[in-house]
Simulated assay, not measured.
Amino acid sequence: MGFDREATQYNCGCYYEYFSHDFFNYSKDHQFHNVCGKHNTHKFAMEEQHKEQQGKQIIEQASYVLSQKMKPDKVIHFLRIKNVLSKKEENNLLEITSERQRAKELLSVLANSTKPSYQQLRIALIKANQSDLLKYLNEGSTTEEEGDITTAYEGKCFLHLQGDTHVVAKEYKNQMYIHIRNYDHTGPRHFPTKQGVALTPSRWLLLEMKKGNIREQYQKSIEGKLEDEVVMHLGGGVYVTINPKFPTIDIRHFWKPQDSDKPVATKREIVLTKTKWERLCLVMEMIRDFIPELDKACIC
């Protein structure tokens, strides 16, 4: 009996190849192909697909009540803009004369789609001023509370990375800040802790610009190929550091004493694990849905 080459395919296009035998898998010869460009590892692609499958089950379970309450036209429009729906699917839905039936068919299309649709449906409901319907799309295991999502959206966004860490955008003294911060979940609300950083739009854009270099240096650190600490400046007193001794990415505020030329690290920082960093990169792709002002911001 010989070995057969098999592959695990994900909806995003990524796939994982390996040799298999009738009685066992030969794990020494395997390779993950990051086709969509969003998943650096087989594990991350698998987690994201599992989460999306759970989301589609939630859509199915909520279909009856949503079809009774949802105003579908604006939701359909937004999902088309985000390429969750094709032009043909949009036209077919809009040809349905009954609003209730149109909403029901939309939810059926999303539940059976191979494209990521759960989170996009949630964003579409917010965009369509129907955030009161988010409670019907509640994930049983989520750390987000629907009240926090709605309130945070009104203050721009509240996006979950992992554990207690969220990306939050709010204004302070007429200045927009994008926080990457740990939140304390006490009772039905989330409260910000001091563990985090606040970035102006300019510094967020620099973080996006340096994303590829950060990913490259971080991968070297994980593989043990990074010899010295890497420091990248995001403007002001904010720096990204990657230390070969620790498998994390550290974003931290520094300050410069008057009697020293060397900046000193403060306790205002956020430490990102591999999963948090990968999900932060995904947030970078969707955050303009919440903060369109970023398109007009400039790096200075």
Rank of each mutant, 00 (worst) to 15 (best):
V168W: 10
W277Y: 11
K194N: 13
F191D: 10
E269W: 00
Y177N: 07
R189V: 12
D259H: 13
V271Q: 01
R268I: 15
V238G: 04
H233K: 07
M176K: 10
R252F: 12
Y172D: 14
T186A: 11
H253N: 15
M209K: 13
N174I: 00
E229S: 02
G212F: 11
I287C: 08
Y177E: 09
E269A: 14
V271E: 00
P263H: 01
R279W: 11
K267G: 13
Y218M: 02
D228Y: 02
P244I: 02
I249R: 09
Y183H: 08
Y172P: 08
E227F: 09
A265H: 04
N174T: 00
Q217P: 00
T186E: 04
Y177H: 02
F254C: 12
F246P: 01
I242P: 02
D259I: 12
Q195S: 09
R288M: 05
K225Y: 06
L207M: 10
V197T: 04
E227Q: 03
E285C: 12
V238N: 03
L206S: 09
E229V: 15
W255F: 15
V197Y: 00
H233R: 06
S202G: 04
M232C: 00
Y177A: 00
R181Q: 06
K194C: 03
R268C: 13
F246H: 15
Y218S: 12
Q175C: 11
T200R: 03
Y177Q: 07
D261M: 03
P263W: 12
M209R: 09
L234R: 04
K211T: 07
E285I: 00
L234G: 02
Q258V: 15
V168Y: 10
M286K: 08
A169P: 10
E216P: 07
K210E: 10
L207A: 06
I242D: 09
A265R: 05
K220W: 06
T273V: 08
Y218W: 07
V231W: 11
L207E: 05
V264P: 12
T266E: 02
D228F: 12
P244G: 03
P188F: 12
K211Q: 11
L205A: 07
T241S: 14
